[in-house]
């Protein structure tokens, strides 16, 4: 038991927890993106998908997914804050002159981008999942009597404030991912002189694609491609 506690508290294990939970969150992000892109398929498909998601396995699937996500997020954020505090103490009083060679703005601002993502996620859930804010868009019902997710999204993104916040949050997430993807490979023990440069490139490319994918939704709405 003492050994388990020691392992759990170690920097290497906490970092590993960050990577595993980060990958879970990343997987969710991709699934979420796929769901969002249904807006280009049509209102019917999107609303049907929303219903299916809530009714999968008699409505239990969504709760399992939610539980996994909440646990991942809590562990990820906790480890992020604990490790960042530790690192601040460890490096205490740094140099008068700095000259970074390999680290990037993204790698050095992981806690900041992470906390920004967290604040946005809370706001985003309050808006689209709980309907606690921007309530005027939450109660649409489509012709088949379903929650009209499609219309909620379209009407919401016609509000500049909502769109601007969303776009900023997506870019911040892209920034987080740019370091995170390659970093997770390293943490999980995958490092090879031949493949590591491609992993790094692939991580950046995937981050950019994710950003473009998410932003395409409000852009299509603003420019009237999606009505």
């Amino acid at each position: 038991m003492r050994r388990l506690i020691e392992v759990w508290r170690s920097t290497v294990f906490q970092k590993w927890v960050m990577a595993i939970t980060g990958v879970m969150l990343g997987g969710f992000l991709l699934a979420h993106l796929a769901g969002n892109l249904l807006i280009f398929v049509g209102a019917d498909d999107m609303n049907a998908y929303a219903v299916e998601l809530r009714e999968l396995l008699h409505g239990s699937a969504i709760w399992v997914m939610r539980a996994v996500l909440v646990i991942s997020l809590v562990l990820h954020v906790r480890a992020g804050i604990v490790l960042a505090q530790r690192n601040r103490t460890a490096s205490g009083g740094r140099y008068a002159v700095t000259s970074y060679q390999r680290s990037t703005l993204a790698s050095r601002s992981m806690l900041l981008t992470g906390l920004l993502i967290l604040s946005y996620v809370l706001y985003h859930l309050a808006h689209f999942t709980f309907g606690a804010i921007h309530t005027e868009y939450y109660h649409y019902i489509d012709s088949m009597g379903r929650h009209d997710v499609y219309r909620m999204v379209v009407e919401s993104f016609r509000q500049p404030v909502i769109t601007i916040l969303y776009v900023v949050a997506v870019i911040v997430t892209g920034f987080h991912l740019q370091h995170a993807i390659a970093s997770a490979f390293q943490t999980l023990g995958i490092n090879h002189p031949r493949y590591s440069p491609s992993i790094k490139m692939g991580g950046t490319l995937l981050s950019i694609l994710i950003v473009i994918g998410f932003i395409s939704v409000p852009m299509a709405i603003i420019f009237g491609l999606v009505q």
Binding site: E6, R9, S10, T11, V12, Q14, K15, L83, R86, N87, T89, A90, S91, Y100, Q101, R102, S103, S107, R108, M110, H179, A182, S183, Q186, T187
Partner: peptide, 18 residues
């Protein structure tokens, strides 16, 4: 060795690769 490294107060790796 990992536990000793932590005990000495070194930071955690965030893969900056500096």
């Amino acid at each position: 060795m990992v536990l000793a490294m932590d005990d000495e107060g070194f930071g955690a790796c965030t893969n900056h690769l500096e």
